[in-house]
Structure formats: structure tokens, C-alpha cells
């Protein structure tokens, strides 16, 4: 995976003064998506560090504005003059909340690409979507796969192009919580771009810069036997319906159903059981590479 062109255009505007506290505005050009941020400079710096590698391609979503209050106790998200959400920020963990809402807002304004709240990696042009509930072990599995030779494709938000059967890189650092670090063992080569609220934001060196074929869907469950088991594509579509995805957005329901039904026939679907899905990373990679060999 080459370094590729730098996808971010940061424009720092002159700082404003809000009630005696310094505030700033930043415009992030993230591929086809523009994110305007306003708030305390140190907070914006952390948000930019986490989002700066994100690049949206494949459609042009409307620009989103996120404003953090000077005391960092609340945030709002808007498209144009329309406020979409207001969020009370916790003293610890505010960065994850802001980044999560930025990414969720992007997912909600898409009209053509499909999204899944999931992680993803790629190896040799073959992409693997890792779906699971929060805390199921998605990030630790992704970290183990990257350490074993895969490239990071997405963490938190996976974008799929139903017309081409591909997934697009949505590079966000791995959100490594204490239990993730324990499960993953050694993190893949990379660097920490931010650390807040007990979460390290770890940007792996191995990152995908081009779309990959949506070749595999892995559903991480809790419990059960620690092994990979095949899942029918019908059951995979139903499982996607249970997770946060375009299927859970009423206005996308029909086109999401068509899109996922178009992508899945070319994909291999598996479930991972057991308490330590990261331990099965070598098997997942073997399955992914076997698919390459079979093509």
C-alpha cells in the first residue's frame, strides 16, 4: 500500500474570542466531503488529528458543521442552517463522542453509498468487513489482521459501493480501549495520533488507499465455540439488518436492501465465536487469501 496523496486540506482561520475563551474554526477537506469545525483550538486539534486521514470518495455528501462549545460540554452538528443534533459531551470520552457523531452524520447524509457500522481490512485487493456489537472484539480482530499483513480499511464506518461491489477506504485511527489492547496484544506498526478518555487513537502504517472488492463479511459474536463458521448469505443480510447500517435508515431501506443483496452474492460470509476473536485472525486472513486464489 503506497502512501498516496495527502487527502486532507486543513485551513486554519483566525481564532475568535468567545466569552474570554479562545475558539477557532477549521475546514477539513476530506476527499469529497467537507467538515467545518469550530471550538477550542486544543479540542479541534485532537478532532483533526483523528479525522485527517479520512477521505470520502464515490459521492459528494453535503458539508457538515460541528461546533464544540468553548467549555467543551456540548456540541452541535448541522447541515447548512439545519441543526441535526445537539450532544452533551462527557468530561472524559468527549473525543470519541464527537468523532462518532461526525462519522454517523456522514453516514446519514449519504444517498448512494451504503454504510455499515463496522470495521474493515483489505489484503491483496480483497476487503473484509468486520461486523459486531460494541465491545465484541471488532477492533482487536482488525488490529490482529493488520499485524498479520492486512491493511486498515475502516474503523467504525464502512462504506460500500453497490454498483461496483467494492468497499471504500474510510481511514480513521483504531480506537484502542484498554480491553482492545489486551485482546489484540501488540498493536500493528503505526502511531498514536490522539489519546483521550482512556482511548488511544492508533493510526496503522498499513492503510488502504484504493477501493477493495467486498469479498468477505465476518460477524463477530459473543460466546460460542472459538471458531469460524460459514453463514448463509441470506442470514448475513438479516444480520446486517440487526446492526446499524443503511438498512436501519428508513429513507434508505429499499435501495440498501437492493444494494446489499447485490453485493453479498460475491462475498463469503462467516461468523466468529468465542471470547477472543482476535485469536482467529490468521484463519480469517487465510479465508480471505483463499478467495483471491480461487478467483
Amino acid at each position: 500500500m503506497g502512501a498516496g496523496p495527502r487527502p486532507v486540506d486543513l485551513t486554519l482561520l483566525p481564532p475568535l474570542d468567545a466569552g474570554g475563551r479562545k475558539a477557532a474554526k477549521v475546514r477539513l477537506a476530506l476527499g469529497n466531503w467537507t467538515l467545518h469545525l469550530a471550538g477550542p483550538p486544543a479540542a479541534l486539534s485532537a478532532v483533526c488529528a483523528v479525522l485527517s486521514e479520512l477521505r470520502v470518495d464515490g459521492e459528494v455528501p453535503p458539508a457538515v458543521t460541528i461546533a464544540l462549545s468553548p467549555d467543551l460540554r456540548s456540541a452541535t452538528g448541522a447541515v447548512g442552517a439545519r441543526t441535526l443534533w445537539t450532544l452533551a459531551l462527557p468530561p472524559s470520552g468527549w473525543l470519541g463522542a464527537v468523532v462518532g457523531h461526525a462519522v454517523a452524520t456522514l453516514a446519514n447524509v449519504l444517498t448512494r453509498l451504503l454504510f455499515i457500522h463496522a470495521g474493515a481490512i483489505a489484503a491483496e485487493g480483497q476487503g473484509c468487513v468486520i461486523v459486531g456489537e460494541s465491545g465484541a472484539g471488532k477492533t482487536s480482530l482488525a488490529a490482529s489482521l493488520i499485524r498479520a499483513g492486512a491493511a486498515s480499511m475502516a474503523d467504525d464506518l464502512v462504506l460500500l459501493d453497490p454498483e461496483h461491489g467494492t468497499m471504500l477506504p474510510v481511514i480513521i485511527p483504531l480506537g484502542v480501549k484498554a480491553w482492545t489492547a489486551r485482546a489484540a496484544g501488540t498493536l500493528p506498526a503505526g502511531r498514536e495520533v490522539a489519546c483521550e478518555g482512556g482511548t488511544r487513537y492508533w493510526l496503522p502504517d498499513a492503510r488502504a488507499h484504493a477501493p477493495a472488492r467486498a469479498a468477505m463479511f465476518v460477524f463477530v459474536g459473543r460466546g460460542g465455540l472459538p471458531r469460524l463458521r460459514p453463514l448463509t448469505r441470506g442470514a448475513a443480510l438479516l444480520a446486517l439488518g440487526r446492526h446499524t447500517s443503511s438498512l436501519s435508515r428508513r429513507h434508505r431501506l429499499e435501495d440498501a436492501f437492493r444494494g446489499f443483496a447485490r453485493i453479498l452474492p460475491a462475498a463469503r460470509c462467516l461468523t466468529i465465536g468465542g471470547r477472543h476473536p482476535a485469536a482467529l485472525a490468521p484463519s480469517v486472513l487465510r479465508y480471505l487469501r483463499a478467495g483471491v486464489a480461487a478467483r
Binding site: T232, R233, G234, A235, L237, L238, G241, L247, R250, L253, E254, F257, R258, A261, L264, P265
Partner: peptide
């Protein structure tokens, strides 16, 4: 949608998937 030997139905009125 026919996926292999299975069919997934989307109930448009209820947003419900049936396998």
C-alpha cells in the same frame, strides 16, 4: 431477493426483513 437457496423478503411497510 434470492440468495443461494434462500430468499430474503423485505416488508416495505414495516421495514422488516424475513429470511
Amino acid at each position: 431477493a434470492a440468495l443461494d437457496d434462500e430468499i430474503v423478503l423485505l416488508d416495505l411497510a414495516r421495514g422488516q426483513l424475513i429470511l
